[in-house]
Design a binder for these strands. Structure first.
Lengths: 326, 326
DNA sequence: GCATACTGGGAAATCGCTTTCCGGGAGGAT
DNA sequence: ATCCTCCCGGAAAGCGATTTCCCAGTATGC
């Protein structure tokens, strides 16, 4: 491998000068030497050793992104946004997938700390269980080492946050559905302890003028929606799944049982994942700018680093065929 | 940050011993000292500085994965498999997305080289255009620096490869469709220069006993399928899209124009992406073990490194509702 | 014309870890 | 008891950059 020293020798300058030319520095270098160094680097095919650079500088160019599941379109979209934004800043993204295991989330933060990652971004909502304390401890340690942390979702870790208006979005959806004549709702509410799920569920229920909705708990994924939909009691005219992948599962369950959407029951989700586009019927949902969430988190984490700041993002109700007025 | 030296001092041993205990080494360390070091590390909250380790060892624990688009379920599934496999080997994955720009692909390989990444995995098929030479040059340079390269798709870069039997899979599909009574086909063939697309198209066409299929070229993504489907001529009873996302687009186009699938025309894709599961009608396709592709590529790239080896993966025809016998 | 910046170049000290090499002590064979 | 191995601990030389000083040369202010 060609090292900086090789380049310097080849160009007939000192190591310091070569470094200043090739890897950016506050100091200026004269045009003549600068050209010589650049040419030498090109001829030799020099490539910076990022590990050495990271060691010397004390900070790397890696941004860590921790998601639950890359196959879930929700996280895929966020990751996409994050990768693009990182790229624009000359950073590169390392992804970890936890598959909803809090221990793995902690392990990833720890590993990213070891990498001296510039920032870590946590996507995917937290539960309120005891492992949260351990995660917080790990994050604190990471930050004490000079790292930055940004969270996508709820503002509860005391860090930079891209906060999603889950309650408001769900409430707006509830109002829209009510305005279309629905009164008897079921909510596929996800896991009882998952903050995002709880917020959406409560936001929705709180905005309902009529009777309290039927609440069905279950996993936060497609199969969770599928299972939950099968245990909805009678008399419901409209079902709200707290995220789109659950709604997709619910739709499959309805289809299998011969329940027609929207003729027999209306259905709405939350997130507006890309794959909804080709679903029949098209799914009513609350649109979130997913790629933007990822990108904003990156910007935040790369920001100047004063007080932890919170960016608020709102959802927009999108009514599609899966809901019919009563 | 607490360094290894801090730990060594705290434990009253030398740097070398601490290193051997904490970061794995061929050499043994006596039980007494080992315990002291471990305790000191725990008390101080020591965390290895990976950058320093990489520098000293000359090889890091990063695997680079370059895909076209994380939002495409095909790549998401591959990435998921790769991340899991990497994790099992104590490695971590850095993803880059090219959005089908060959220049970006090269840039990522270069950047991964600078990271001293242990291996880079290229997913997403290549074109046969001139930039291929530049990519090859960059890959060679990377390998000369001691890196490993694995490619998912076609065996044409002279590296470790997870080769997909595109021709055979498409041929098997053609036979299955023919056996169901179809004779008049259209192929949504993707871009003319894209190897994967060409292989699937030719494999399909070559296995057809009847007249040559109608070939419609277009982009390799959902919208490409949508557009291509709209320009299919009359008389066709069955359409083969060279990948699933294109088939999904085609389905949307048909639906909009009132063409019923499978009543008016049958439709098949290739890949068996996860999102097909909730499509109506369920899509006939050739199943590829996508996550496994990613995982196998990682194994290959981490293998002992003799001759470049090629793993062959076959597709399996899966007939679903979107195809009807004639 | 002289003191005072200011500019750009280079020598050398880090950064935190791995690993080679050296050496002392324990154990086995003769 | 002597000699040879092993075995394991430590000192120190890198790994490839960045950055702080130090310095000479030139520009600036009066």
């Amino acid at each position: 491998m060609v090292t900086l020293e090789d380049v310097a020798r080849h160009a007939g300058v000192s190591l310091a000068t070569a470094s200043r030319v090739l890897n950016g520095s506050a100091r200026q270098v004269g045009a003549g030497l600068r050209a010589k160094v650049e040419q030498a680097a090109a001829e030799l095919g020099y490539r910076t050793n990022v590990a050495a650079q990271t060691l010397a500088r004390g900070a790397g160019n890696v941004i860590g992104l921790v998601v639950h599941d890359l196959v879930d379109p929700y996280f895929a979209a966020i990751a996409d946004g994050a990768v693009r934004a990182a790229e624009a800043h000359g950073m590169v993204v390392m992804v970890g997938t936890t598959h909803r295991d809090p221990a793995k989330e902690i392990a990833y933060v720890s590993s990213l700390g070891a990498q001296r990652a510039r920032a870590v971004i946590l996507a995917g909502s937290r539960t309120d269980d005891p492992s949260a304390a351990a995660l917080r401890a790990e994050l604190d340690r990471y930050r004490n080492g000079g790292g930055r942390v940004a969270v996508i979702g709820q503002d509860l870790l005391g860090t930079d946050t891209v906060a999603v208006a889950n309650r408001a979005g769900a409430a707006a959806l509830a109002e829209a559905l009510t305005a279309m004549g629905h009164r008897d709702f079921a909510v596929l509410a996800g896991p009882p302890g998952l903050i995002t799920a709880v917020d959406r569920c409560e936001g929705f229920a709180g905005a309902l003028p009529g009777p309290a909705p039927q609440i069905v708990h279950g996993p936060f994924d497609r199969d969770g929606g599928y299972a939950a939909a099968r245990s909805i009691g009678p008399g419901v005219t409209c079902v709200f799944a707290v995220n789109d992948v659950m709604a997709v599962g619910a739709l499959a369950a309805f289809r299998e049982r011969g329940v027609r959407v929207p003729d027999d029951v209306s259905l709405a989700g939350f997130d507006d994942i890309a794959t909804l586009r080709d679903l029949v019927p098209a799914l009513t949902t609350v649109r979130l700018p997913l790629a933007e969430l990822g990108a904003r988190a990156v910007e935040l984490a790369l920001g100047d680093g004063e007080e932890p700041s919170v960016v608020h993002v709102e959802g927009e109700v999108v009514i599609r065929e899966s809901v019919r007025a009563r």
